[in-house]
Amino acid sequence: MEGQLAHIGAGLAAIGSGAAAIGVGNVAGNFLAGALRNPSAAASQTATLFIGIAFAEALGIFSFLVALLLMFAV
């Protein structure tokens, strides 16, 4: 019973991956919108883009980690 609850929890934690996907999409989409308005400034901001994506994705990875812990470690 406890193991099954852990699996349910893991599934719930996996929702966080979708939330992180929204975040990454927001970052990339806004970068693209800005880049199309001012293409000359876009090249200098790709590093910022990747840093932003990395921060957004890290939180999704955290939720993935929680899911894994619930699946395998509990």
């Binding site: 990395a54 994705e57 890290a58 990875i61 955290f62 993935f64 980690l65 894994l68």
Partner: peptide, 10 residues
Amino acid sequence: SIRLAGNVMA
């Protein structure tokens, strides 16, 4: 650290 390991592991 978790970003790197998590991405690769995932």
